[in-house]
Nucleic acid binder design. Structure first.
Lengths: 237, 237
DNA sequence: CAGTGGTCTAGACCACACG
DNA sequence: GTGTGGTCTAGACCACTGA
């Protein structure tokens, strides 16, 4: 296959996909590969970016489907808000799944970041956010167990750790230092988000601090590209 | 191959890589695949994430090399600064390559974003940023030709479009609205950055405005993960 | 030139969903 | 069971580098 023919393959695949109605199923991979005159591996490689863009969705054992327009969660980054609040503001329904709450002993990272002593207990809360039945984000929060009660949290209105902490007025949450990265999905994260290992993700790691600068919560967030639009307004130096 | 054995493969590869001195060359892919008892395709798949992390570097026709610690360009996003300035502040040398300046007629995007009329001329400036000889970012700026003189720009001290515009005091640059995405490299971008098509990139698209809100410059930036650390401080809502 | 990584192929088997 | 996508294999050829 020539250097440009891969581009042509992608172009014809793209027009084939976009010409189809939303929700429709594409021909199976072996058939499509034969139609296009390439091997299945090459076909799959060409389709990779379409799934990243949110153009298609593959379901093992079922097929590959065209995704129509979907709501994009648009969020400025200056303010820290829970995804639930952001989605609520644009009238979008999000749900939570795979909520896991786990207590554990502090590890090296917690000692360093959260300023805890060896032997103290931390709580790790992980969850998957869905819009329209589709997993779109995987969030992991780690914080001292003393700050969060498992039963209170599970009985709360929101599954957002941030919203829970804000309800507790005694904490004086001030800001979050958020680091922005692009990464590829590990097996674990891929499983949570129902994507393939190796797929592209936008990745935040954030330290939430109170007004004294003490770090309260370290969180990792993994977002499917295509479903979110994060932006920030930058001052000219 | 079982579901967990891939993880084991990655683990043993990782420890093999990290135990080697920086700059050293790994065994060739066929040899390594044989050693590990997997096919070359599987080996390459397992090595993908290592290149994303900046742990290794592949060079076609030469070999695969261990990368030692490298300086990470750490930048807050509140202030908009050129990469050259940020790097300079931490004492890091960056250079520019593949500078391309191109004049063209406005396309639909420019009409919409830059508020130009059909028939006006725009200038597109693209360039690759290197640190330590390694391409780490690919930047594309598009702006009205009237704002930038090709010869002035080429003779300037910096190859940064932002720095050039700032020198011109008559513009009143105020802020940049920057959208943050994760994406995979197209053939063109992969070629510029000397990576593989399909590799992961962090991606900004930014509109630079003057104090009246008029958009002066639309830019696209592609960053290799691992070499940059962008962060933002978020206020608690 | 020989040796490297980059790509593609054909085929196989697995895990999974659904009737 | 049948058919789907997910993964892996063995082998081939290409493009590139450097001696």
């Amino acid at each position: 296959m020539g250097k440009e023919s891969f581009q042509r393959l992608q172009d014809s695949l793209r027009s084939m996909i976009t010409s189809r109605p939303a929700e429709s199923r594409l021909p199976s991979e072996p058939k499509l590969a034969k139609q296009m005159g390439v091997s299945r591996a090459t076909l799959r490689e060409a389709m990779r970016s379409f799934e990243t863009e949110g153009l298609i969705r593959r379901k093992q054992g079922v097929g590959t489907f065209v995704i129509g327009d979907f709501p994009i969660i648009d969020a400025g980054m200056e303010k820290l808000e829970s995804i639930e609040k952001i989605a609520g503001r644009i009238g979008l329904n999000v749900s939570t799944e795979s909520l896991e709450i786990q207590q554990m002993q502090v590890d090296d990272e917690c000692v360093r970041v959260l300023g805890l002593k060896v032997g103290e207990s931390i709580t790790r809360i992980s969850r998957v956010i869905l819009t329209d039945g589709r997993p779109v984000a995987y969030l992991v929060d780690t914080l001292p167990t003393s700050l969060i009660s498992m039963s209170d949290f599970e009985n709360g209105h929101s599954s957002s750790v941030l919203d829970f902490l804000l309800q507790n007025g005694s904490l004086n949450l001030a800001h979050s230092r958020t680091e922005i990265k692009a990464s590829i999905a590990s097996g674990e994260v891929a499983n949570k988000l129902q994507i393939q290992r190796g797929d592209v993700l936008l990745n935040f790691s954030a330290d939430l601090s109170d007004s004294s600068g003490k770090v309260i919560d370290r969180s990792y967030s993994y977002f499917l590209p295509g479903y979110f639009s994060f932006h920030v307004n930058r001052r000219v130096g």
